[in-house]
Nucleic acid binder design. Structure first.
Lengths: 250, 250
DNA sequence: CTTCATTTGTTCGTATGTATC
DNA sequence: CGATACATACGAACAAATGAA
C-alpha cells in the first residue's frame, strides 16, 4: 500500500487536500495560464497516482475557488481566479445574520462606502480625457426608471463596473463589483426592496459621475455618502423592526 | 464581452451543485449558528435524497468556503465564514502571475494601502481612550529585530490585527488581515525577501500608531505610504529583473 | 442527422484510519 | 483494550453532455 503512506503524511492533517495542492503545483510547473486546458481526470489519476474520487474532490475544491473551470463532457481549464468565492461566503454570512440583526450586511455596505471614498484619487486621475458617453447614458436610464418607480439593478451594476474600468488596478474594480453582488444578492433573499429613494440613488450616480469628470473631490465624497444613504437607512429601520417584535406582524 | 462569460459561469455554478444549496438551506431553516453541529453524512443523505458521494462533494465545496468545518472522526459544524477562500484564490493568482510580471501581487499591496487609507477616520475615532500598550510594545520589538537585521512577520501581523481590532466593522479588519496573509504567503513562494528596508518598515509602524493615537490624519496617511514603500520598491526591481532576462541567472 | 468516442457527473460497494465511549 | 460510529479513500459501473466522423 504505497497510498497509505500518503494518508499518514503530515500535510494531510494540516492542509485540507494534498491532491488539490498537487494539481496546483502541476498548473504552476506546466506554466498554464487562465483559459488553458487541464489534463483530463484519468490523466490526472495516472500522473498524481491517486484515484478518480480524490481527483474529483480536489477539482471540486479548485472549482469552488475559481482556480479551475469544468465543462461537462468537454474538459477542464484554468479558471479566472475571480472573487466569486468571496461573494458566496459573504452572501451566506449576510443571510445567516438576518436572524439576529443585519450587522453582516451593514458591514459590507459600510466597507464599500469607505472603499469608494479611498478610490477618489485614482478614479479622478484615471478618468482624465476619458470618454464617459455610456456612463452618462446609464445615468439617464436610471433616472428615467426611477421616475417611473422601477428598479435599475442592471444599470446600477454596469455603471459601477464601467466607472472602475479605467483604473489600472483591476483588483479594485473586482472588489467593488463583488461587494455590489453581495448586497444585491442578500436583499432579495431577505424579502427586502429599496424604498422610494430610487430617485435619490439615481441622482447620486449622476453626481458621482459629474464629480469624477470635473475632478471635484469633495463633491465626489458627498455624492458617495448620498448614494449609500437610502440603503443604510433601510438597514436601520429593518434592524429596528427585527429587534422590536411588538411591531412585527406574526 | 466579459459579462456573458460571468453570467454563464454563475448559472453553471448554480445548476451544477444543487446539493450544496440544499445543505445551505438546511442550515438556514434549522437556524444553525457558527459552531453548531451539522447532521452527519448518512442523515444528510436521507434528508436530501442523494448519495454519500454527492453529500461529500457538497460538503467539500462548503468546507472550501469555510461555511462548514469538518472534524475527522467526530462530525461537522457550521463554519466561521472567514475570508480564507479569498486568501487562497489571491495567493494562487499571485504565484501564477510571477511568470509574466508581478502585477497581481502589486495590485494586492496597492489595494491594501488604499484600504488602510480608507480606514483612517474609523481608526482614529475607535482608538479614542483606548489602551495601546501591547501595540507600542510590538513596535519596540519590531524596531529591535530590524536593528539586528531580523524579520518580524509575527509581530507585523499581530500589530495590524490589534490595530484594526477596536473598529466596530469587523469585516474591515478581516479584509486587511486577508491581504496581509496574501502577500506574505506569496513572497516566500517566489523566493523573495524584504531588502534592508526593515528599519523603515518598523519605523513606519511606530509612526502609524503615533498618528492614530494623536488623531493626525495627514501623519497617518504619510506613514501608511512609507509603510508600503519598501515593498512596492522591491516589486518594481523584481519586475524589471523578470522582464530583462539579460540580467537574470538562467 | 445519426452514430460513436471522449469526458465529466452520479451512484454504489468496500476497505481503512480516527475519535469517542 | 475493545467496540462503535464516523470520515476518508479506492474502485467499478452507469448516466449525461459534448464534439467529431
Amino acid at each position: 500500500m504505497a497510498k497509505a503512506s500518503d494518508l499518514h503524511s503530515d500535510a494531510a492533517r494540516k492542509r485540507r487536500n494534498t491532491t488539490a495542492e498537487k494539481i496546483k503545483q502541476l498548473i504552476l510547473l506546466s506554466g498554464l495560464r487562465p483559459g488553458d486546458s487541464i489534463p483530463t481526470e484519468p490523466e490526472l489519476c495516472r500522473e498524481l497516482g491517486v484515484s478518480r474520487t480524490s481527483v474529483r474532490e480536489a477539482m471540486r475544491t479548485l472549482t469552488t475557488l475559481d482556480i479551475v473551470e469544468v465543462q461537462h463532457g468537454h474538459g477542464s481549464r484554468v479558471g479566472k481566479m475571480s472573487l466569486a468565492p468571496l461573494v458566496e461566503t459573504l452572501v451566506f454570512r449576510g443571510v445567516l445574520s438576518s436572524g439576529d440583526d443585519l450587522t453582516a450586511l451593514r458591514e459590507v455596505v459600510e466597507l464599500r462606502s469607505s472603499f469608494d471614498q479611498a478610490m477618489a484619487d485614482q478614479l479622478i486621475s484615471a478618468h482624465q480625457g476619458h470618454d464617459n458617453q455610456s456612463l452618462a447614458q446609464l445615468v439617464t436610464q436610471m433616472k428615467g426608471k426611477a421616475a417611473k418607480g422601477q428598479t435599475f439593478m442592471a444599470e446600477d451594476r454596469q455603471f459601477h463596473a464601467e466607472l472602475l474600468a479605467p483604473i489600472p488596478n483591476k483588483l479594485a474594480g473586482q472588489m467593488v463589483t463583488a461587494f455590489w453582488d453581495v448586497h444585491t444578492a442578500v436583499l432579495p433573499r431577505l424579502g427586502l426592496a429599496l424604498p422610494d429613494d430610487l430617485c435619490q440613488t439615481a441622482q447620486a450616480h449622476g453626481d458621482i459621475l459629474e464629480a469624477v469628470q470635473s475632478g471635484n473631490h469633495d463633491g465626489y465624497r458627498t455624492a458617495v455618502v448620498r448614494h449609500y444613504e437610502p440603503l443604510l437607512r433601510m438597514l436601520d429601520i429593518t434592524a429596528a423592526w427585527e429587534t422590536q417584535p411588538e411591531n412585527a406582524a406574526s
